[in-house]
Design a protein around this nucleic acid. Structure first.
Lengths: 278, 278
DNA sequence: CACAATTACGAGGGTCGTAAAAATG
DNA sequence: CATTTTTACGACCCTCGTAATTGTG
């Protein structure tokens, strides 16, 4: 019975056209490959090669054999991938979130609860999160609302309040009790890009503003301290990031500026929620 | 990368439940199998076994791996089968016939024309023959009629005339110019079973007769000489078999008693017909 | 003459089997 | 105490690489 190494060699020969080239690619000597192919032919019990005087080629059987060998090899690769993926999935817990803030609290909590497991997280759109939860790509997701699906369990996690951060010199800086989007629509702002679902706010509520996008957290912080342009912050971000006291942080009063995050998982995993709630 | 031998061993272990039993079935020593499985686990990069103190078993990864390995092994077997079948098909010419008589002339002719090829033949129903010709199971078939299909080429081969063979003492023995089915419907007859499409005749034309079936040619010939029961013969069968002169052979006059055999092949093989015609 | 394939031959490595150990019911 | 798994160890087989041969374009 042929071995996979022989099938790989056969395919390599088919791809290279010559034993020498194939042997080179396979990191074995060319006589070794020559003999391996002779053994393969013998084990198949069928002539696979056309022995030209100075040229080895595949006959019709050989062409079929190569085609079939490719299938076998592909399936073998897939087997290995599947097993490895299955193993990885068993020892990692995958989280998806609509925004970064929940992860700041969630990831440490999960690592605490499951010290033997790895935690992987992504930030995605709500639709993709629900999709991924159903297909098993995620064990846990964070949404800005409670889903209706009876297959899913959810519980309220915490809320996050969007603030406007301006230098003390800014005209709005004295509005301690809060501002509305309409108060600063039209201003040019600094905007960090990795903010998940919050990215909907500027387009929807500040149609007249322009935004300087920055995806690198360090660079963004530099820009904030170096410039006087207004930017966003939240109550949560100021707990988990350095609280830059060079700026005044004004709560935004519109309802869209408050996010209520929900932890969501499949019903069968609902004990997860209990373990995570404070 | 795992080798097929390792996958076979893994599956054997899964089937046997213990290394010892599996090793016995695989005709290798049990330590050898133990180490082979350790290597497999290492190559997969994933734990596959549960190491009990005195008991080795598969974990969840292992169960998946076994399942996948079975697929790979099955596909490999299929690959080998396919290649071998392809090779055999390339060096044999398969003939299907509706009756034995055409094969008596056809098979020697084919062996003559293609000395390097093996000839395999079957007797089947007309429908199966046409089906097999289309699917490539046959290169050539013999039908008792000319098919309509424009994809097929055909030519008339020869005709065969059914006779009634009776002892000289039989009442019909003097009817030298022939008999009809109706003349002997109701008589008990000897009947050889391997006669292809001729088997339709008795049911259709001799509904009141009873038949003693015999599938062994030698035994049938013995019965014919030993008994006085009427039986069938044909002009062709008497050329290719011993012509038993203890009986009188009366041509049967009904149109159904004459078969006109046609050689049929796919259009692309039509030179076959030319080569075969006398 | 460079290049390709096959054969010859000696060396090395990997796998095997035997034997021993450890552990269990 | 039989059974099972694992480790140790020495031997052998198998495959490999080098080198030589043959044959081409």
């Amino acid at each position: 019975m042929p071995e996979l190494s022989q099938l790989r060699q056969l395919v390599a020969f088919a791809d290279c056209g010559t034993l020498s080239k194939a042997a080179e690619g396979l990191l074995i000597s060319q006589p070794a490959l020559s003999r391996a192919m002779q053994r393969l032919e013998e084990e198949l019990g069928v002539t696979v090669f056309e022995h030209g005087k100075n040229k080895l080629s595949l006959n019709e059987n050989g062409l079929l054999a190569v085609e079939q060998a490719r299938l076998v090899l592909a399936q073998t690769e897939e087997m290995v991938s599947r097993v490895r993926a299955f193993d990885r999935a068993a020892r990692t817990i995958s989280v998806g979130s609509c925004a970064p803030a929940p992860l700041w609290r969630l990831l440490p909590a999960l690592s605490d609860l499951f010290p033997e497991k790895a935690v992987s997280s992504e930030i995605k759109e709500e639709g993709e999160l629900l999709q991924g939860l159903r297909t098993g790509d995620y064990q846990l997701i964070v949404l800005p609302f409670a889903p209706e699906d009876p297959e899913l369990a959810d519980s309220f996690y915490f809320k996050e309040q969007l603030h406007l951060a301006v230098p003390p010199s800014h005209p709005l800086a004295k509005r301690k009790d809060g501002v509305c989007f309409s108060d600063f629509d039209g201003e040019t702002m600094l905007l960090f890009s990795e903010i998940g679902f919050w990215h909907k706010i500027p387009r929807a509520k500040l149609p007249h503003s322009r935004f300087l996008l920055q995806s690198d957290r360090f660079a963004f912080d530099e820009l904030v301290t170096a410039s006087t342009l207004p930017c966003f912050s939240t109550d949560i971000s100021r707990k988990y990031h350095m609280d830059d006291d060079t700026r005044v942080h004004l709560p935004i009063l519109d309802p869209e500026a408050t996010a209520r995050f929900h932890l969501v998982c499949r019903k069968k995993d609902r004990m997860l929620l209990k373990a995570l709630l404070p």
